[in-house]
Design a protein around this nucleic acid. Sequence first.
DNA 1: CGAGCGCTTGATTGAGTTCAAAAATCGTGG
DNA 2: CCACGATTTTTGAACTCAATCAAGCGCTCG
Lengths: 181, 181
Amino acid sequence: MDNLKDILNFDSNAKPTSFKKGTIIQRAGEITSLAYYVKKGLLRSYTIDDKGKEHVFMFASEGWIIADLESQEFNRPTELFIDCIENSEILIFDRKSVVNLNLSNEQLLDYNRLLTRRIAVLQKRVIMLMSASAQNRYNFFLEMYPDIPNRVPQRMIASYLGITPQALSTIRAKIVKKYSS
Amino acid sequence: MDNLKDILNFDSNAKPTSFKKGTIIQRAGEITSLAYYVKKGLLRSYTIDDKGKEHVFMFASEGWIIADLESQEFNRPTELFIDCIENSEILIFDRKSVVNLNLSNEQLLDYNRLLTRRIAVLQKRVIMLMSASAQNRYNFFLEMYPDIPNRVPQRMIASYLGITPQALSTIRAKIVKKYSS
DNA sequence: CGAGCGCTTGATTGAGTTCAAAAATCGTGG
DNA sequence: CCACGATTTTTGAACTCAATCAAGCGCTCG
């Protein structure tokens, strides 16, 4: 069991919402404890810095949950925008209410493992960002999320990798060149 | 309650171990499910890349836990070294045994919050690494961990920030200059 | 079919790396 | 407690990767 939907018995009390591509579900500055389970479609969370530049924090396709745990945990306004890259069907739930769900120990342990797994992914990401070149980060991304690249515009991938769209374009050109030589 | 020691009732079955400064507690390549609770002292975890360069993943002072959740979660050999920056007293425990502790729901929810908080910290770190200059990352680090800088060599801080010791040295020089002008 | 957005390509700039060497600090044994 | 060797930090010069600036191409969708 590695799916929060099952762990939290979503079916019972869930009301799926449809969003059109491009819809902004959450804006920086809001105070919220909501989280979004992606039933169908593709979301992303991202910050916008002082210079107006976007930085993609994560993508969430089918089966993933997306939320700003950081702000929620410390009761601060969100720093993350969340929007739809595709038309999506989303289960919205309040993270605060999880406490009141009277979950079994087993469910909690499962939820635990889910959180641990998220930590694992972030650990990997941090180490990548610190130690790998843009080139390697891109290759790693392709391996780790094979389905995402086809569904997401280049500039968002660049943003996820922490580089500019131009740099990514150059990297991709080099890869093509390598294979044709 | 935001301390794993209390959450897991450590006092009962804990056997604290003393390590001297410089001791390497865990080496990359090992398969282990151990985690280390810092009772006293200061640990760090880090990777060593192909070029032999160290990258500090995190520091752990009193009250923190350190482990390679990523490798453990996916049952792979560790990629993280862990060693002692100061003489330290450590409670070693097996993460696998946590399941068998028969924890109460409340304890599990607390443990959950602890994990969530870790995710929050990592989220912040990822966004910093992607969007902030070396200068800003350093300032942020000083604010976030005021006690750590005095206890840790510059080169390790540089490594944590993802820059070279030389770059950090230059940044520090600029800060001093700013205050003296 | 035209306007706008996104991707590419090239030229220039800049933050941070690398290489090298001097200065400062640390740690250890006498 | 001092002295000496080793390690760490600083400083400077040359270089590199990716950012920025700018312009052109191609698609999409209105």
